[in-house]
Write a protein that binds this DNA or RNA. Structure first.
Lengths: 336, 336
DNA sequence: ATCAACATGTCAAACGTTTACATACGAACA
DNA sequence: TGTTCGTATGTAAACGTTTGACATGTTGAT
């Protein structure tokens, strides 16, 4: 009874039922007007619209979803939205989704398998219609078991899913070749320590191929990507100190490139004079902050756009291309 | 009947009903087990858990929400997630929400009033329990009308809402004073062109006060924040060309500071020798990319954390502090 | 025997929608 | 005069849960 009082007529959001009462018709008729389904006389239509206006009615997508089993909701899992690459992807995905009447549930996995697992559970419970995954830290089966539409950005989610990635091998190839063409003989390749088999690892593969092909010896080091930037810097510093002959660095991504440049500066080394540095990604914000960085740019907006379009296509039962590879481009800066 | 076939037993996700059937109890009992409500024997509890395990049951938060009117969902509106400041806020908000069992619906308003309005509508339809707004482009009434819990970051959403902001006046004060102490006599202040009355505008107020107090003349210019970075650069270039006596710039935020530095470099001007530049925000990623930038740092993580905690408190009917102002800190770099 | 108290579980209504089915009316057709 | 169609509306079941009211059984005290 306290409850009755709590949501007295006006306080609770009105539903289709209230609209019906005000308009003097049945709830079904209101639903018909809302969805333009079946026959409705103009007179009734007007009455209903007036009623909706009068009591400030908003349809409830949640209730709708329970019936037709579709909420038009997409889960998006990234390691960190604060990373320039992922931030730009997320923004592009969200824009494209919104333009098509979909919404996005954002998840930051922090590259932690336990978090990623609990996000998967959360997404299932919330009836998402599909999931876009940016960085895998657990087996793809965990996703497959959801029985939902799946799009992997830079990762393979298996049978029936769509995979979107830049030409990772091309990234490694362009970057490494650029350094060699510049005269580097001892090139350090930095990579994240992911155990997962991701296309991004092909960057390293390409580096190895190109370096070998040039008759040089390889030098690959891993940096844990969960660490804060300054700790990564310490790792880089150690590597540089231990290998004073390094004259070129393929940093793996632009953030690592920035970290390398910072460490170098602390040691009185400058790019490109002492060591040449090439990054990868070329996010818009990154380029504003570091316009001089030599890097290999991905078409990040396109990746996000395609991811969104693909997941929508999958949900609609269409057959989108299942393995999209986007070209990359070397951006000439002043660090190599 | 084709329908019956389409979702035959196994294909559709099992509900509480299926669990009940397998466990040989009633749906109510299953619900009781799930929510630990009422008396249940250990035996029954085990049977139910086994059944859930067996048919791979996941509760449906959506259905739950329809009953108790609470979905534990928060709408978050930012202009662009790709901006370093907003990306870091969003990340902190999401982490804090997730830790408390809430989820986030992300919206990129692009600072467009029409988009912001349609997002509000979307959020209402999706039964969000509260909204966190980062940048207002429409009247706050539009939010108040939702009748939901509201938290404004750097903006006032009116009666009953919580407002969280850095000490904006302090930002302008520290930056401007720093430039004056450094000997600047002609200081340009850049600001966005927002028509809204936001706390962030106090940065300019402080600039005006400090400049006047020092007996200098003010020079404030607006830059449309919706434009891409290179167009902003063109605006800055024009300002610099028209005012060759400028010897210091309070850029408003770090991105503008970066743009200023880029334009200066194109013109053969360097910081701090020719023109001193101070930014504002000090996002983590920004500092990695531009470690030499002199800026005023906000505690962005804390802002996000507080925003999330505040909205949860509001939803729970608690009484969180309604106007939180966070201290800022001058970061000494090499551009001033 | 009777009654309260506890332990366990079932039933049915509710949340805000959609939709298959039924009803009702007039007009056109044979 | 009946059959069929086109139009306009209402009824009730369903979606997957939760929950208050109720039913049944078992103890133990009176």
């Amino acid at each position: 009874m306290a409850r009755e009082g709590a949501r007295s007529k006006d306080s609770a959001k009105p539903g289709i039922k209230e609209v019906a009462a005000v308009a003097g018709v049945s709830p079904t008729t209101v639903s018909r007007v809302l969805n333009n389904r079946g026959y409705i006389s103009q007179e009734t239509r007007d009455k209903v619209h007036a009623a909706m206006e009068r009591i400030n009615y908003t349809p409830n997508d949640i209730a709708r979803a329970m019936l037709n089993g579709r909420l038009n909701l997409i889960g998006m899992i990234v390691p960190f939205v604060s990373s320039p690459f992922h931030a730009q992807v997320v923004q592009a995905v969200e824009r494209t989704l919104a333009e098509n009447g979909f919404k996005m549930l954002l998840c930051n996995s922090a590259n932690r398998p336990d978090l990623e697992r609990s996000y998967i559970d959360m997404l299932r419970r919330n009836m998402v219609d599909g999931v876009i995954v940016n960085s895998l830290n657990i087996g793809a089966e965990a996703y497959a078991e959801m029985g939902l539409s799946l799009v992997g950005i830079d990762c393979d989610l298996g049978e029936g899913s769509v995979q979107i990635a830049s030409d990772s091998y091309g990234i490694g190839e362009l970057a490494t070749r650029r350094l060699i063409d510049d005269g580097c003989r001892r090139i350090l390749c930095l990579r994240s320590n992911s155990r997962m088999r991701m296309p991004a690892n092909k960057r390293t593969d390409a580096y190895l191929d190109v370096v070998e092909q040039a008759g040089l010896s390889a030098l690959v080091r891993e940096v844990e990507f969960v660490k804060p930037d300054d700790e990564k810097g310490a790792v880089v510093a150690k590597i540089l100190d231990e290998n004073p002959d390094i004259d070129g660095i393929f940093a793996g991504d632009d953030t690592m490139a920035a970290i390398c440049l910072n460490v170098m500066k602390q040691r009185g080394l400058s790019a490109p004079d002492d060591i040449k540095v090439v990054g990868a990604d070329g996010a818009r914000r990154t380029m504003t902050f570091m316009p001089d960085l030599t890097t290999v740019r991905q078409d990040i907006d396109r990746i996000g756009e395609l991811a969104a379009q693909s997941i929508i296509a999958l949900i609609n039962g269409d057959n989108p291309e299942s393995n999209i590879k986007l070209p990359v481009e070397l951006i000439e800066g002043k660090t190599a």
